[in-house]
Design a binder for these strands. Sequence first.
RNA 1: CGGGAAGUAGCGCAGUGGCUAGCGCGCUUGGUUCGGGACCAAGAGGCCGUGGGUUCAAAUCCCACCUUCCCGACCA
Length: 573
Amino acid sequence: MRWSEALIPTLKEDPQDAEVISHKLMVRSGLIRKLISGSYSYLPLGLKVLDKIKTIIREEMNSKGAQEVLLPAIHPPELWKKTGRYDVLGDVLIRFKDRHGKELVLGPTHEEIITDLVANNVRSYKELPLILYQIQTKFRDEPRPRFGVMRSCEFIMKDAYSFDCDTAGMEASYKKMYDAYCRIFERCGLPYMPVEADPGIMGGNVSHEFMVPAEAGEDKIVVCGKCKYSASTQVAKCKEGSGVRGPGKGGKRLPIAEVETPGISTIEKVAQLLKVETTKLVKTLIYKADGKPVALLVRGDFEANETKLKNYLKCEMLELADEKTIEEVTGAPVGFSGPVGLKNTRIVADNSVKDMTDFVTGANKKDAHLINVNTGRDFDTKEFEDLRMITRDDKCPSCGKAIEIINTIEVGHTFKLGTKYSEALGAKFLDKDGKEKPAVMGCYGIGVNRIAASLIETSNDKDGIIWPPSIAPYEALVIALNTQNKEVKKISEDIYKDLTKGGIDTLYDDRDISAGIKFKDADLVGIPVKVIVGEKNAKKGVVELKLRKTGKVEEITRKELKSRIKSIINPSV
RNA sequence: CGGGAAGUAGCGCAGUGGCUAGCGCGCUUGGUUCGGGACCAAGAGGCCGUGGGUUCAAAUCCCACCUUCCCGACCA
């Protein structure tokens, strides 16, 4: 492609509405433009990147025997109602009506649709296993689209689904996809790490997230430098008693007493007023689990982990109770809840509360707290579990050494689904033993746009993007420094044609503008290999080859050029 | 949905009651340049987010709404 004919609107300055680096650089380098919040147009250069990522994904999927399909984006709500996700997804699911008044939804993901397809077309164990995938646009009404294409309402996802006769088969399919994912992210040049994660509303009990460490990441994971343990903070187990500043164990059991705390309703303020550490307080959080109130107790300095609570309670919907419910349950306004005297409410407690004695809680009474509360004496619960968020002071749940908590971007997620969808949608097959069984499923997602954004997030400098050859919009850029010079122009043209013919994806900057602009644009757009044709070198019969990543310069004859570039962009050949 | 910020030329911004709304970059034309965002000259380009109000007079003050960004809530 000739730059003079291409639509590559680069910008000198950061766009006013971009905050994170990848967003700024994607806009500045002419990859994307915003239409509305959470919805972006891909310009020629941006689309080329997406296409290269898709090609890598297809190659790796196909090599594992997965077959590509294309499912519709418009779905009937009935399928979503069958699995209950019509309600669970809530406002995220975009709903609308056609001209006949029939309700339709836009696909936020495709478990329901693919399972329905398999249910209608697969009858026998002989047709399994099956792995189907597609690369398609998903629609989600995100509560808060953010960071350019990192979290958008319309995005491209590669989603794959495996169907097997039994759990062992599913495990094998899962392994195949897991391996393919590692290959994909590796080939895209991403520093990724797979971590244990929570399946959330997808269902199933095991899932892995593929994370790219980046400051701008929205997710947090725990990593252990010693034993390589890594997990999403949502699921990372807290070793009992491993949080620092443990509660004062033992001691006397002092008589329970009420203290006045007018208008003091936060943990910090109560601790301040009573002149005690927040570790002497117990937070009481009232939740609604499938509509029923549940009280969760957590030591004052810890944070509740709703994922763990939800999994422990085995409920579909879990949300913090609203003010009205809290008043009904506790008889007091928000901020004064406590376990003592709670009626008709299940009380569950985090392990951090187990050994605490003489602690502080709300009194279930406006402007009052209780001191010297003791489990067993003043209230009771047998339900102690790991229900809090891990902190950086916790110890590695695997080896007990220090851990780190880092920000990451989720670029992929794989799930062992089991039979949740196949049962709900009737994806059954006749097995060898003549019995009808539901297919055992797995599902596997990759955010295609997110791969591009995460790469930029982890690979850039003050001048712009640094693409790896594998997903760069072009592999090489030929710069004719002075297009007015006949010789320079001729050599550049020849090189451009020669490289292109030789199978190197080449962009040719033939614009009649100053060299400085060409260099700045080249660095901004970040094409890995620059071939610079200037007057002086032309006379010497050489051209200059400069690498974006290292800045390394070599002078090279035109004869050697093609094979040298090939060895750079594809080292294995 | 709660808190905060912002909307003026394609982009980045200035203009806080006054007469024809500016600056830089970009764009067009002509000329000079040509190895890291060159220079000269002449141009084009604005419902000052929308609607209402206050005023002799509003980009500027007031109200409502829309849009965007950030933090939180939420999130596969």
